[in-house]
Design a protein around this nucleic acid. Structure first.
Length: 954
RNA sequence: AGGCGCGUAGCUCAGUUGGUUAGAGCGCUACCUUGACAUGGUAGAGGUCGUUGGUUCGACUCCAAUCGCGCCUACCA
């Protein structure tokens, strides 16, 4: 083995081998199946830390279950990501001074497919770099033929059931992208704005009402002014008419209790039903009153074009829009109208006002509520069983608090607007004839056949495409072949767990549950593991504009400072940030980022994955876990040096994880490490089963470093390098050495696949678990280690505790007394029990080697103890005679410190025992334990105090 | 406004139904080129567990209040 661990040389090689050999395909055996659907990343996207985290967790689960012998499928695939992808290609066109309409629909879509072909492999290549063991042979894409069939099938069936309908109503309109977007795609941000107080004169000439608004330009669409019916100031005016300024129109004063808060603003609300969701609701409640005044369109007046500029009068003959404003952008119109109102003396005042401005999360454009024809899914009937599925535990959220978020949304769910006025996506399977009749079907042919329309009858397909999340909602079954009844569907649906961030519970999780129950008759997954967000080391969200983004691939491969700066400062929305970002980057990464390898990165994600908590990504942790890899590497190197070509007590034994047949002897250390291993296996399994990857990682880390390396490897040395130890003992040690390592590798493999495979390939034949010349063996499909009760050895653990305490005691004295650790010291034992004496003889080899003891003499009770430095092992005193080694003052100080600690401790315990209530009410077990502890403390105290007195007398 | 979560060592975080001397990693101090590993070893310093009150024999852990921080949902024209 190479002297230093070098991840880059092993990782890529292994991944290719694994994939070539088809190790990621589900096995045909296995009683249970286990399946995870990847949350499909954007096909043209690139990997970010969230993916890194998410996929590490999934791959860990997948590898764990595969090793446990389950029939395990991790379904890969990508999402066409309608708007996001279309925007990217439109930007490219911009570079060529073209718009998508210049190309036309067909050519534009072709162009996107080209882009997909070009960059679509990027994300999947990066997923491979993470070691993700996805079943690539069955990779799917949300727009491939099969998935498109599923989409059409679902659309048609829902339509036939009346759960999909077409309707004209207010939607969130993006005036930049020219499409409707769903509520979820709208993000609100607080902005500084104004509140304009405008006077609307009463038609009877008796003064005016003052309405307060943040959007004066929508005045053109007003159809009424609403007041609260209980408002003494205005209630007598309800039913009267107002002169709507700038328009010459008359609008009524209406009373609406629900919407109008008398305390806010002036208590008078202008009602613009075509451009405000609340106003629309008011309008619906008061249609009659409003149309009494014979308003055009019943008062539902659209004033904007699709660009959110003031429309012309061409679309109707009512001449509602004053010529002056036609064609103005909404914000220009606002300025002009405010000025005009002021000139007319109708502007009472303008106040500063903070308001929430809705923006499209994709384009950033300010959303305009806009009246259009769209397709909707009637969600309530789908939501009901989906709520019940969570209530009755068919779907379990981890951590469970997320189900509140889910309920909250599901109980207030609105119909889902599924049509988008873009080109990239699944085209809506609906056709119109010239009379405007709608025909929905799986294809035009089906429609014609079903409705007896011959080929000459003109039909035109709906121009719109479906919301991307429509196809995503079908992902858990469409990827498995639905609507065909495939074997895969039978084997893997419902899937076992969905691993995702909380941000898409609404977008995706809830919709999958609804669609799964509707079309499969069962939930799509039994558990939803919701993980936190990956943030930067200061707890900030990683974002391009903040310049704090880390690329997982850079952490794996390394990146130089200049390249990192360049990466972070190019393509910024606001180029002014570049300098700040550059400074910040140079400050934080003066040397760039060094190469940590995939395994270290994965281990970091696992170790930081406490449930439900955001993780602050700390470079120190990655570095630490890279060191851990190095530790494991070097420990293995040491093991190999000691077992390769040597008798490990394996030969002649049947290959596999079997018991030894050869004569061998297991030392106390062997039995101890085997026992510790069993407990670690158990801890890791429990941790993974409960999604505590942090606990799993920690258990592995501690066992590997603090027990196997720090103690066991050291304890092996005197056995293996000593001519006086027996062959049977050496065999036992070698066997334990190599077998524990082999188990440890399997135990660790789900989290760190590469390093474990690389080492396992060398170790496994020696450990006798595979034939030496097996070509195709891989750790991937080896059994996951399970606890073996028979190897748990409390006696050995206690005995080793004695050995360790002995060694630590001496090291401590040496450390605090400035005695070179390598300097051999004579040791005397006082107050030694029979077992102490026996242990001192039996484990002499360990003591000499690890504590560098020179001689060990047992003092009889009648023998005088020389002045010494003291350590306690239980009740036994381990003494290092002072001679010239030890400084008396230092030893006195050391003892005083130790005594103070014990006294402090005893004090608290005594107080506890002095409390009769404690003796009475606490369980016997606890009281007993406290008593024992106190007794121990007292003995230790006495012992040390005597020692101190002795030293002070000198 | 409603909901959720967090506050433990300088930093990043564990602490499982209330009972340990409150732990780990990084960082810090001292010593050590010992034949797996200086990406290492040995020893050590460092915390009144945000604050206050309550329940209890006993609270980091349960309850209440309070302060600070974060997120989500809904929004007042």
């Amino acid at each position: 083995m190479e002297k230093t661990y070098n991840p880059s040389t092993i990782e890529q090689r292994w991944y290719e081998t694994w994939e070539e050999r088809g190790y990621f395909s589900p096995s045909n055996s296995g009683d249970k199946s286990y399946c995870i659907m990847i949350p499909p990343p954007n096909v043209t996207g690139s990997l970010h830390m969230g993916h890194g985290f998410n996929n590490t967790i999934m791959d860990t689960l997948i590898r764990y279950h595969r090793m446990k012998g389950d029939k395990t499928l991790w379904q890969p695939g990508t999402d066409h990501a309608g708007i996001a992808t279309q925007i990217v290609v439109e930007r490219q066109l911009e570079g060529e001074q073209k718009k998508r309409h210049d190309l036309g629909r067909e050519k534009f879509i072709e162009r996107i497919w080209e882009w997909k072909k070009e960059s679509g492999g990027n994300i999947t290549r990066q997923l491979r770099r993470l070691g993700s063991s996805l079943d690539w042979q069955h990779e799917r894409f949300t727009m491939d033929d099969g998935l498109s069939d599923a989409v059409k099938e679902v659309f048609v069936r829902l339509y036939e059931e009346g759960l999909i309908y077409r309707g004209k109503r207010l939607v969130n309109w993006d005036p930049k992208l020219h499409t409707a977007v769903s509520d979820l795609e709208v993000i609100s941000a607080e902005k500084n704005g104004h509140m304009w107080h405008m006077r609307y004169p009463l038609s009877n000439g008796q003064g005016h009402l003052v309405v307060a608004t943040t959007r004066p330009e929508t005045l053109l669409g007003d159809c009424a002014v609403a007041v609260n019916p209980s408002d003494e100031r205005y209630k007598h005016m309800v039913g009267e008419l107002l002169e709507l300024p700038l328009t010459g129109r008359r609008i009524p004063i209406i009373a609406d209790e629900e919407h109008v808060d008398p305390e806010f603003g002036t208590g008078c609300v202008k009602i613009t039903p075509a451009h405000d969701f609340n106003d629309y609701a008011v309008w619906q409640r008061h249609r009659d009153e409003i149309s009494i005044s014979e308003q055009a369109h019943g008062g539902l007046i659209n004033i904007f074009t699709i660009d959110a500029a003031i429309r012309s009068n061409e679309e109707d003959e009512t001449n509602l829009i004053p010529e002056k404003y036609i064609g103005m952008d909404r914000y220009d119109a606002r300025k002009q109208m405010v000025a005009d109102l002021e000139a007319l003396g109708l502007l009472e005042k303008v106040e500063d006002h903070k308001l929430m401005v809705p923006q499209c999360e994709r384009s950033g454009a300010v959303i305009e509520p806009f009246l259009t024809d769209q397709w909707y899914i009637k969600v309530a009937p789908l939501a009901k069983p989906a709520i019940e599925a969570v209530e009755n535990g068919q779907v379990r959220f981890v951590p469970s608090s997320w189900k509140n978020t889910y309920y909250e949304w599901m109980h207030n769910i609105q119909d889902w607007c599924i049509s988008r006025q873009i080109w990239w996506g699944h085209r809506i399977p609906a056709w119109y004839d010239e009379k405007g009749n709608i025909y929905v079907g799986r294809s035009e042919t089906e429609v014609r056949n079903q409705h007896n329309l011959d080929d000459n009858y003109p039909l035109r397909q709906d121009e719109d495409v479906l919301d991307t999340w429509f196809s995503s909602a079908l992902w858990p079954f469409s990827t498995l072949g639905w609507p065909e009844q495939t074997e895969r569907l039978k084997d893997y649906y419902p899937t076992d767990v969905l691993v995702t961030g909380f941000d898409i519970i609404f977008f995706w999780v809830a919709r999958m549950i609804m669609m799964g129950i509707k079309f499969m008759g069962d939930v799509p997954f039994k558990e939803v593991y919701v993980h936190g967000l990956v943030r930067d080391s200061h707890g900030n969200k990683m974002s391009k504009s903040k310049g704090n983004v880390l690329d997982p691939i850079d952490l794996i491969d390394s990146i130089g400072l200049e390249a990192l700066v360049a990466k972070r400062t190019t393509g910024l929305m606001n180029p002014k940030d570049a300098q700040k970002i550059e400074d910040q980057t140079r400050n934080e990464f003066p040397e760039g980022i060094s190469s940590f390898g995939t395994d270290a990165l994965r281990f970091t994600f696992a170790a930081l994955a406490a449930t439900g908590r955001d993780i602050k990504f700390d470079m120190g942790r990655v570095e630490g876990y890279r060191n851990f890899c190095n530790k494991l590497w070097n420990a293995s190197r040491y093991v190999m040096m000691n077992v390769e070509g040597k008798d490990c007590g394996i030969s002649g034994v049947k290959i596999g994880y079997s018991e030894p047949a050869v004569e061998l002897e297991r030392s106390i250390a062997d039995r101890w490490i085997l026992s510790r291993l069993q407990k670690t296996k158990q801890a890791v399994a429990i941790a993974i089963d409960s999604y505590r990857f942090d606990h799993a990682a920690q258990a592995i880390y501690e066992f590997t470093w603090n027990e196997y390396c720090d103690w066991y490897l050291e304890l092996c040395k005197p056995v293996l390098n000593n001519n006086n130890t027996t062959d049977a003992a050496k065999r036992g040690t070698r066997r334990t050495l190599v077998r524990v390592l082999e188990s440890l590798l399997r135990l660790t493999h789900p989290i760190m696949p590469f390093i474990t495979e690389e080492i396992w390939q060398r170790v496994a034949p020696i450990a006798g678990v595979i034939e030496a010349d097996t070509q195709e063996a891989t750790i991937i499909n080896q059994p996951y280690p399970t606890q073996r009760q028979s190897l748990i050895d409390e006696k050995a653990e206690n005995e080793m505790a004695w050995v360790m305490q002995f060694i630590l005691g001496i090291r401590k004295i040496k450390g605090e007394m400035n005695i070179p650790p390598g300097k051999p010291v004579p040791v005397l034992l006082a107050n030694a029990s029979e077992s102490d004496k026996l242990f001192a003889i039996q484990h002499r080899l360990y003591l000499d080697f690890l504590a560098r003891t020179d001689s060990i003499l047992v003092l009889n009770s009648n023998e005088q103890e020389p002045e010494s430095a003291t350590a306690l092992v239980g009740e036994m005193k381990v003494l290092i005679p002072l001679a010239d080694l030890i400084n008396k003052e230092a030893e006195a100080k050391r003892l005083e410190k130790e005594i103070a600690r014990l006294q402090n401790d005893s004090g608290a315990t005594e107080k506890k025992l002095a409390n009769p209530n404690f003796i009475d009410k606490a369980p016997q077990m606890v009281v007993q334990k406290v008593r024992e502890k106190l007794a121990e403390n007292h003995k230790a105290l006495e012992s040390l105090q005597a020692q101190l007195a002795k030293i002070q007398q000198l």
